[in-house]
Structures are given as C-alpha cells and as structure tokens.
Computed example of a mutant assay.
Amino acid sequence: MKPGLSKPRDIASLKSRLASVRLKGAETSVTARARKLLLVYLEAAEGHGMPFQDLVREMRSGLPAVRIAGMALQQIADRPDGPLASAACAAGCAFCCILSGQDGGTVSEAEARQMHGALAPLAGKPDGRDWHPRACAALDPLTRTCRAYDARPLICRTYISTDVAACAKIAEGIPAAGAGVVGAQGLMLAAVSLSRAALDGVSQVASYSLARITAGASRGEDLASCLRAARQPPRALEDERRRFGG
C-alpha cells in the first residue's frame, strides 16, 4: 500500500480513497470520467446497503468497470450519427478476430470468467485457430462467427470498422485507416486501473489475456487454471490503459 493512504474499511472510506488516488502519468479526461462514474457506482451501492466485502469482490472482478463502459458503449450505439451507423462489420468478416500480440487483448476478471463459461461446453471442438493460426479460439472456423458472441468482452464489442479492406491489412500487421476501438474500452481500462489503486492493500485487481482465456477454455482447462495462466503482469493493464487514452 502506498504511503499516506489509509486502508479503506467501509464504502465511505473507499469512496474517499477512490477520489484521491492517482494513476501514473497526467490524468486524462477518460480517467477523470471513469473516476466520476465509479464514485456514482459506489454511492449507489452504499445507498442500496450493499455489504462492503460484496462491493470489494465486484470491484476486484472489474464488474463495475464493465457495466460503466457498457453503458457508454450503448450510448454510442444509440446515436443515429455515431460510428456504428457507418460500420461495415458483418457476420463472417473475422479479420478483427485475428489477434495481435501475445495477449490478444486485455480483459477484466469478470469478462474472463464469462468467456470461459461460454466456451467450456465447446471444449475439444474445432476453433478459430483451425482457420487462422492467430485467430481467437472463440471463433467458429467454418462460419467465422463468434461461438461466445453474447459473452464477448468489451475489447471485441468496441472494435468498429468502416472498411473491410483496412481490417484485412491490420490483421496482417499493416497500418490502415478505417478501423479501431471506440472510447468505451479505454473507459473500462481506466476504471479497472482506478479500482486497483483504490483497493490497494485490501484486494488485488488483476487483468487477463483474452487469447489465453479462450485457448484454455477451448482445450478444456478448468476456470481456476485458466485464470492463473492468463493473469497478466501488473504493467500490462497500465500499458493498455495508456494505449487507449486512459
């Protein structure tokens, strides 16, 4: 625990801690928004009489962050002139499911658990890697649609493209305009990072590799083993937060 910060023991002291903690680097508008919305979430939890330890478990899993970012994404989707209105995304166009980097994307514990639950019943069946060696294991190799679509994390939900050709180039490591992640993912990462800082000394908030979770679930690993193997080093979350403007 950082010097000068007292360990929160109830929701009131957790709110105070959340309001005062600072992440590395200058605070961005994304982080400021995430902090404000998390404080509103804590206020609501306190108002509904949620036990402190239950709230800690929720924050540790990243569930508040996912809910906050999900609402932000819905607001984007509801805009008639928003980025979704001109999206070229369609079923079977799976270039965005060809994962980049070793981790293939950063997800919260809540998202990791949800993906594992959706894929575990499909263990041993052909997966996306039978179509492309770097594809997400959640993908169906024949239809090139997500086998865990309703459970997919925000990193997948927030990726939008106006140009399929750009997606094909990006999948092969060639920079191209026309595709990218909308702001809700950065908001989620900032909220998870703030939760980690606020719960320092109380509970550990981890982030996880999407590629490792989906691969493990697809080959039949139990949830606990999957989470242990997919857990990222602390710096991974901070690097992703900064990459997405948080």
Rank of each mutant, 00 (worst) to 15 (best):
S195P: 07
P121Q: 05
E238R: 06
L37N: 07
L154W: 01
R35V: 09
G4Q: 06
I76R: 11
L38T: 02
P234L: 05
A165S: 14
T145N: 08
C93K: 13
S108L: 04
G105D: 06
M59E: 04
R17V: 15
L38G: 01
R235V: 14
Q102Y: 10
V107Q: 02
A224F: 02
I11T: 15
D130L: 11
V192S: 01
A165Y: 04
G245E: 08
R17M: 04
A85V: 06
I213T: 15
L73V: 05
A198G: 10
P126C: 09
G47N: 12
A44L: 13
R242T: 12
P153G: 08
A230S: 14
Q53A: 14
G25L: 10
V21K: 06
S207K: 02
E109Y: 03
V205K: 08
P133M: 08
K169G: 00
D222K: 04
G104R: 02
G92K: 03
A85K: 13
A12K: 13
S218D: 00
A123R: 09
S203R: 14
Q114Y: 00
L142T: 13
D81P: 00
L63M: 13
R57Y: 03
S161I: 03
M1F: 05
E43G: 06
L210E: 11
E238H: 11
A90V: 13
R35Q: 09
A110V: 10
A77N: 00
L37P: 00
T162W: 02
V202H: 03
I160K: 02
T31E: 15
A90M: 08
P153Y: 05
V40M: 07
K7S: 12
A118L: 09
A72C: 02
G105E: 04
A190I: 06
L199K: 08
A230D: 11
G220I: 09
G101T: 09
S207Y: 03
V164S: 03
K2T: 13
L154A: 12
I76M: 12
M71F: 04
M59T: 04
G92F: 01
D222L: 02
V40E: 15
